[in-house]
C-alpha cells in the first residue's frame, strides 16, 4: 500500500465485511511527540480471541477465495517500517479497533494520501453505514459525521454527485487545516 488512505480503505472494507453499521476513524498527528496515529473502530461482529491472536499472520483470513489475507500484515509492516506499531483489540459481538502508529519524521513513514478519495468511495458504495472521521493535531480538531450530513440533506441522498463532490472538498479543507505543516507532504 502506497499511503495511509489506502490502508484506511482496506481497514474499512474489513469493518464492512464484519457487518459494521458504525465506523469511527481518528487520525491524530502530534508534532510534539512526532507521532501519527490512525484508529479505525467499528461495531461489527468482532473476532474470537484465538483468531485475534493470529490475525497479523498473513495465513489468517476469513476470505474463501484464497488462504492468505494481507490487509492487516501490510498495515503492520508499514507501521513497523516507520518505528510504529499495530494494535488490535476486539470483542465478539461488540466490535473491533485497529490502531496503527508511525513516527512522523521517519524517512519510511508513508504519506497520508488522498483521504477525501477514500471517504468519497466508501460513502458512495455503502451510504447506509454511519461514518465518523476526526482529524486531530492536539491543538485543533476537525470532525466529519455522515449522519450529521444526512440530517442536513433531508430527502437528498448522500450519494448525490454534488454532495459527494462537496464532501471531498470539505475533507480536503479539513486535512489542510489540521495537518498542513505537521505532515510535511501537506502544505499549510
Amino acid at each position: 500500500m502506497r499511503d495511509l488512505s489506502l490502508h484506511l480503505m482496506d481497514m474499512i472494507q474489513n469493518s464492512i465485511t464484519a457487518k459494521a453499521t458504525r465506523i469511527s476513524i481518528l487520525i491524530c498527528a502530534d508534532r510534539e511527540s512526532d507521532l501519527l496515529e490512525m484508529e479505525v473502530k467499528d461495531n461489527g461482529i468482532g473476532m474470537e480471541s484465538d483468531f485475534l491472536k493470529n490475525v497479523v499472520n498473513p495465513f489468517t483470513t476469513t476470505r474463501d477465495t484464497r488462504r492468505v489475507g494481507l490487509g492487516i500484515p501490510l498495515l503492520e509492516a508499514s507501521a513497523n517500517r516507520a518505528s510504529g506499531e499495530l494494535k488490535i483489540t476486539s470483542e465478539k459481538f461488540v466490535g473491533t479497533t485497529v490502531k496503527a502508529s508511525f513516527k512522523i519524521s521517519h524517512i519510511d513513514r508513508i504519506p497520508l494520501g488522498d483521504l477525501a478519495q477514500t471517504m468519497e468511495g466508501i460513502i458512495i458504495a455503502r451510504p447506509d453505514i454511519e461514518y465518523d472521521l476526526t482529524l486531530d493535531n492536539k491543538k485543533e480538531r476537525f470532525n466529519f459525521n455522515s449522519s450529521d450530513i444526512k440530517r442536513r440533506l433531508g430527502e437528498v441522498p448522500i450519494t448525490n454527485f454534488e454532495v459527494i463532490k462537496w464532501i471531498g472538498e470539505y475533507l480536503n479543507d479539513g486535512v489542510k487545516t489540521i495537518f498542513g505543516g505537521i505532515l510535511d507532504e501537506i502544505l499549510s
Binding site: 480503505m9 490487509g71 477514500t118 468511495g121 458504495a125
Partner: peptide, 12 residues
C-alpha cells in the same frame, strides 16, 4: 475493493 484490488489501484 479487497486488499488486492486496493493495492492494484481500484480506488482511483
Amino acid at each position: 475493493m479487497a486488499t488486492c484490488g486496493i493495492a492494484a489501484g481500484a480506488r482511483p
